[in-house]
Simulated assay, not measured.
Amino acid sequence: MTLPAFADDTPAQDKPAAHHARMTWEERFTQANLAHDGHLTLEEAKHGYHAIARHFGDVDVDGKGYVTENDIRAWHASQKTAREHLKAAEDPLRPRNAFQQHAFTKQQTFKTSADQIVPGPAASPRQMEAASDKP
Rank of each mutant, 00 (worst) to 15 (best):
R126P: 12
N70M: 06
Y66M: 04
Q101L: 15
A114E: 15
T109C: 11
N97S: 02
Q116Y: 05
T81I: 05
A122S: 10
T81A: 11
R83L: 11
S124H: 08
V118T: 10
N70T: 11
H85Q: 15
P125R: 10
K87E: 10
A89H: 11
T81V: 04
A122V: 03
S78V: 06
T68G: 04
H85K: 15
V118W: 07
T112N: 12
E84D: 15
A130R: 08
S78L: 08
G65T: 02
E69T: 15
N70L: 08
A89F: 09
S124M: 09
A122L: 09
T109W: 12
T109M: 13
P125G: 07
Q100L: 09
P119D: 01
T112E: 12
P119N: 01
Q127W: 08
V118E: 05
R96M: 04
P125M: 08
Q108A: 09
H85N: 15
T109S: 11
K111G: 05
P121R: 06
L93K: 12
S124Y: 05
A123S: 06
E90Q: 05
A122T: 10
Q107I: 13
Q116P: 04
T109N: 14
L86K: 14
F104E: 13
S78N: 04
L93P: 03
P119H: 00
Y66A: 12
P92T: 13
I117M: 06
Q107D: 05
E69N: 07
G120H: 03
E90G: 02
A122Q: 10
H76E: 08
P119A: 02
G65S: 02
H102I: 06
R96C: 04
W75Y: 11
A122P: 09
S113I: 09
R126A: 15
E90D: 05
A103Q: 13
M128T: 14
V67K: 02
R83M: 09
V67I: 09
R126K: 13
R73N: 03
D115S: 06
L93E: 13
A77V: 03
T112Q: 05
P119F: 01
Q100F: 02
P95Q: 02
A130V: 09
T68I: 04
A88Y: 06
A122C: 06
A122Y: 06
Q101I: 14
F110W: 12
D115E: 05
L86Y: 09
V67W: 00
A82L: 04
W75Q: 07
R96K: 10
R83N: 13
V118C: 08
V118P: 03
Q116H: 11
R73W: 00
R96I: 04
A98C: 03
M128L: 15
S113E: 14
P95T: 01
A114I: 13
Q108M: 14
S113K: 14
N70Y: 05
G120Q: 02
L93H: 08
T105M: 10
W75L: 10
A98D: 07
K87I: 13
A88T: 12
A77S: 04
